[in-house]
Simulated scan of single mutants.
Amino acid sequence: MTVSPSIASASRWHEMAGRVLNGEQLSREEGLAILQAPDNELLNLLAAAYEIRQRHFGNQVQLYYLKNAKSGLCPEDCGYCSQSKVSDAAIDKYVFLNEEKLIAGAKQAAESQARTYCIVASGRGPTNREVTHVANVVRKIKDEYGLHICCCLGLLKPEQALELKEAGVDRINHNLNTSRSHYDDICSTHTYQDRIDTLKVSRDAGLELCSGLIIGMGESPEDLVDVACELRELKVESLPVNFLNSIDGTPLEDQHDLDPRFCLKALCLIRMINPATEIRVAGGREINLRSMQAMSLYPANSMFVSDYLTTSGQTKEEDFAMVEDLGFEIVLMGHEHQEEATAN
Rank of each mutant, 00 (worst) to 15 (best):
Y192C: 06
D254H: 09
V331M: 13
F96A: 10
K316T: 07
T189L: 01
L21M: 15
G154N: 13
R261G: 03
A294P: 07
E253N: 11
V131Y: 05
S82Y: 14
D88R: 15
R232L: 12
K157I: 01
K101N: 15
N274S: 11
L35H: 01
Q193K: 08
Y94E: 05
I149H: 04
G125H: 13
R203Q: 15
N59W: 03
K101L: 15
V227K: 01
V225Q: 02
K142T: 10
I279H: 06
I141L: 07
F320M: 09
D39F: 03
V120Q: 14
K93M: 14
R280P: 00
L147P: 02
R55A: 02
I287D: 05
V95Q: 13
D325M: 03
L46K: 00
G72S: 08
C152R: 10
E324S: 11
V138Y: 04
V281W: 00
R12N: 02
W13E: 00
Q314V: 11
H190G: 03
E111I: 10
N136A: 07
S27R: 15
E286M: 05
R129C: 03
Q83F: 14
R203L: 10
V3G: 03
V323E: 00
V95L: 13
D197G: 05
T277I: 09
A104L: 12
A341S: 10
C229H: 08
M303P: 01
S9V: 00
I279N: 07
S27P: 15
R53L: 00
I91S: 11
Y80M: 14
S202I: 12
S179V: 07
V138T: 06
V3E: 15
G58M: 08
Q54Y: 04
F262D: 01
N22R: 15
L213A: 07
V95D: 14
C229Q: 14
D77R: 08
S27V: 13
W13M: 00
I7G: 00
V131M: 06
Y192Q: 05
G72I: 10
L213K: 00
G123M: 14
P221Y: 12
P158Q: 08
R285Q: 08
K93I: 15
L258Y: 04
V95C: 06
S312I: 01
E278C: 07
L207Y: 11
Q54G: 00
D259S: 06
S6E: 12
Y308E: 02
L176V: 10
C263Y: 05
I7S: 05
L224A: 00
